[in-house]
Nucleic acid binder design. Structure first.
Lengths: 228, 228
DNA sequence: CGATCGCCTTGATGGTCATCAAGCTTGCCC
DNA sequence: GGGCAAGCTTGATGACCATCAAGGCGATCG
C-alpha cells in the first residue's frame, strides 16, 4: 500500500495500533491494501479462506449469516474506524465465519494476517490490545445471546435504540438510525413488519417519536424502565 | 495452593498452559487456589468483582444469565479440563459477566488474574494460546447467535445433539446428555416441555431413540439433513 | 412396602411474531 | 409532471412455542 501520511496518523491513534513503533507501523502498512467498495458489494463470503483482517475508514459494512431459507441475520454493523475479522488471526485454517458486504459505499484497509502476527510477537502491549478487544467482543456476544434467548422483540428493539445513545445521555435525545430500517430489522432479528409495528406502538405510548431515520427518545429513563 | 504433582502434570498437557516453563507453572500454581463445590453451590454472581479465572477438574458448572422475570439461559456448560472466565483477564474493571453455579459437585482451580497476566508478558506462545482460545469462543458465539436468531426450536435441539457427537461420528451413535434435561433445555433456550416434545417427535420419526439421558442417533447423516 | 418429592411427559390454551397481501410514501428518471 | 421502483406501513391470518395444569415414573426414605 502506498505510504499515506494521513493514514499513518490515523493508525497511531487507533487503540489497536497505538502501541506500535513507527517501524512496525511502516511494515504493517507496506503489507496492507486499501480498497474502495460499493453499496451491496460482497467483500468476502462465509467460509472463504482468510488472509486479512480489516479496518473500515468510510462507509458501512454488515457482517451477516444466512439461513438455508435465505433469511439474513446481521451479526455486526461496522462503522468507520472499527476493525473486523480480527479473530481470523488466530485460526489454524483461517476462514471468514460470516459474509461481509457493503451497506453504504466506502473504503477499507486490509491488513495482512501473517505480517500482523509477526508484529504481535514483538509487541506485548499490542497483544494486550487485541486480547482486550476480543474480550469486549465476547462480552457483547453474551449480551446479544441473552437478549435473543430471554427477551421478546419489543425488548430487543428498545435495547437496540438505547444502545445507539451516547454514553450518559438523559432526558430527550434524538438518534439517527445507522442504516435503513430493513437492515436494523435484520440486526435485531425481527422482520421489517415487526420493527415497524414496534416503533409505532412505542410512538403511540409517547415513548419515542419517529421521523424517517431520526428517532427521538422522549425520556431515556422512562424508556429504560418500559422494557416490559 | 499446595504443590500437587498430579495437577502440575495435568497443566503441562493443557493447551493453555503447555507452553509455560516449569518455573512459570510453579509460580502460577503458587498463586492458585483449589476449591471443591457442591451441586447448586454458587461460585460467583453476575457483576461480582473478578480476580480469578478457572479450570474445572471434576464435576460440572453452568454459566448462565437470568432475565428480570427469573428465566434462566445457560451460556456455557463447563466440563472437566475446560477453563472459563478467561475474558476477565483483559477487562479494565474485571467483573464476571454471568452467574456461575455447580450443576454437579466437583472441584476447580482458581488462578490469580494478575499472576497469569505477568506470565503472559513473558510467554508469547501462551498469549497465542489464549488468543486462539478466545477466537474459538467467538466462533462458537456466532454459531449460537445464528441458531437463536434464524432457527426454530427443533433445529436448535438437533444442532445441540449433533454437537455432542465426537468428531467424525457416523451412522448409529449413542450419546449421553451431559446434564438433566431441564439444564439442557435452559441451554438451548426452550422450555423443558418443548424439549420433551421435540425429542418425542424426533423419536416418532425414527431419527433418534431416547432412554433416560442416553440418546441414540439412528443415522447421523439423516439427522443432519432432517434439520427442517 | 407405600409415601413423597423431583423430574419428566402429555394435553389444552393463548400470545407473540412471521407470513402474505395490499396500500402508501419517497426518490428518481424520462 | 407522470411513472416506476424500493422501502415502509398496515391489516388479516396462522404457526410456533410458552404457559398452565395434570398425570406418570423413578429414586429415596421411613
Amino acid at each position: 500500500m502506498q505510504s499515506d501520511g494521513a493514514l499513518a496518523r490515523e493508525l497511531r491513534h487507533h487503540y489497536l495500533f497505538a502501541a506500535l513503533s513507527d517501524a512496525q507501523r511502516e511494515r504493517l502498512l507496506a503489507s496492507a491494501v486499501g480498497r474502495a467498495f460499493a453499496e451491496g458489494e460482497q467483500l468476502f463470503g462465509h467460509g472463504d479462506a482468510a488472509a486479512c483482517f480489516f479496518l473500515l475508514r468510510r462507509g458501512c459494512v454488515k457482517l451477516y449469516r444466512l439461513s438455508p431459507e435465505g433469511d439474513e441475520k446481521i451479526m455486526r454493523l461496522i462503522r468507520p474506524s472499527q476493525t473486523f475479522a480480527e479473530s481470523v488471526l488466530f485460526m489454524e485454517a483461517p476462514r471468514y465465519p460470516v459474509h461481509g458486504e457493503g451497506v453504504e459505499a466506502g473504503e477499507l484497509i486490509a491488513f495482512d494476517r501473517e505480517t500482523f502476527l509477526g508484529i504481535l510477537r514483538e509487541s506485548f502491549a499490542t497483544c494486550c490490545a487485541v486480547m482486550a478487544q476480543m474480550a469486549l467482543r465476547i462480552q457483547a456476544h453474551w449480551d446479544e445471546i441473552e437478549t435473543l434467548a430471554l427477551q421478546n422483540s419489543r425488548y430487543r428493539v428498545v435495547h437496540y435504540l438505547l444502545g445507539l445513545l451516547p454514553p450518559g445521555a438523559e432526558g430527550r435525545v434524538t438518534v439517527t438510525l445507522p442504516a435503513r430500517k430493513m437492515v436494523i430489522a435484520a440486526h435485531v432479528a425481527v422482520t421489517p413488519e415487526t420493527l415497524s409495528r414496534t416503533l409505532r406502538s412505542l410512538s403511540d405510548e409517547r415513548l419515542i417519536e419517529v421521523a424517517g431515520d431520526e428517532v427521538t427518545i422522549l425520556d431515556v429513563d422512562r424508556l429504560r424502565r418500559h422494557m416490559h
